[in-house]
Amino acid sequence: MMPSTATAPSTEVSSPPTRRRRSRGNRVAAVLLILMALLMLAPFVWTALSVTKPTDVAFANPPVLSGYTPTLEAFKNLWETTYFAQYLVNTAVVALISTVVALVLGVPAAYALSRFPGYVSAILLLLALVFRSLPRFSVVLPMYDISRALGIYDTNFALAAALVAINQPFSIWLLRNFFAEIPKELDEAAMIDGCTRFGTLRRIMIPLMRPGILTAGVFVFLFAFQEYLTALVLTDTASKTVPVFITTQLGQTLPMLQQAGAAAMLLTLPVIAIAFIAQKYLVAGLSDGSVKG
């Protein structure tokens, strides 16, 4: 496209003075990025500190930064005096189920959208976009009313179903772009070899798409894991999730506040582990597909 601009600077790269300047620039950039990352971590770190301080100095003003014995009392209380374990299981179960179902429904749909040309696909994709942008309340409040009428209010099932629907547009959109990257010739070759359309999807496309599906899965799982509003409205006691539980612990006594902080830590740590492990993978998966979106 623009060969002259593209090649001219690239010869400059090798010249010594520029390289030195560049490495200094890189170092400055690295320091700035580290500062940025620390700033981004600040709320998390501050909460972690408050949770592990003895209650009487946990939220002192001015803050107490040293001279105390760290304690895990808040975690112990959380474990022993609340149904935290049950909430965590609820959250994980709902997130896992809704992720699996969202993918089982979304992968074929996205494949179809990527292979079926014309207006129908475009309009369906557009609809997905509009669905993605709907104010959560406009679907969740009727869901509340309907789920009560159907007698499924406050069940993991209702919450998982709602999350599948709410996350469906995003997963379809993301997956469609992954499929669009795979040349159509591959399908044709497979079908000439005697595969049916569904066989092609199952035997050729899905194995090829593994990184893309995993990327979409991670996103859908994260959405479901941290979803607050839908869970707040659709759950009560039996299927309460951790984010809802945490907010009900706020605004009460200090030990409960610390427990809320501890719950936030426990909810986030496994997800952070996933994030650290998966980030490289996510970037790779995303750059395979969504870029041309």
Binding site: L33, I34, M36, A37, L38, M40, L41, A42, P43, F44, W46, T47, S50, F59, A60, N61, P62, P63, L222, F225, Q226, E227, Y228, V242, P243, I246, T247, L250, A260, G261, A264, L267, T268, V271, I272, A275, F276, Q279, K280, V283
Partner: peptide, 29 residues
Amino acid sequence: ILGSMLVAYVLPGVVGAVSFSWLFDSNFG
């Protein structure tokens, strides 16, 4: 760097907001 930045994204919104508010609320340090 990328991993620590993602922490902000994976904290449930309302929980992150509470943690964030503590940084500015003198009643909580």
